[in-house]
Amino acid sequence: MNCIECDAQVAIPNDAIQGEIVSCKECGTSFELVREQSGNLFTLRPAETEEEDWGE
């Protein structure tokens, strides 16, 4: 499965469960795993992350 931000491969653990948060190794974008209606596969939904003020 590829990251929608940077297109790198996102590793999904074999024992992943619905709602689990995974992050892209390359760009750090976090995703929530959402189970497809067929029941076996997951899709990636961007997870809500807290915005921080980096000194701006």
Binding site: E5, S23, C24, E26, C27, G28, T29, W54
Partner: peptide
């Protein structure tokens, strides 16, 4: 190394 990270202080 490509560095454009969404996390941490070194983005």
């Amino acid at each position: 190394r490509l560095v454009r990270d969404k996390q941490g202080p070194f983005r």
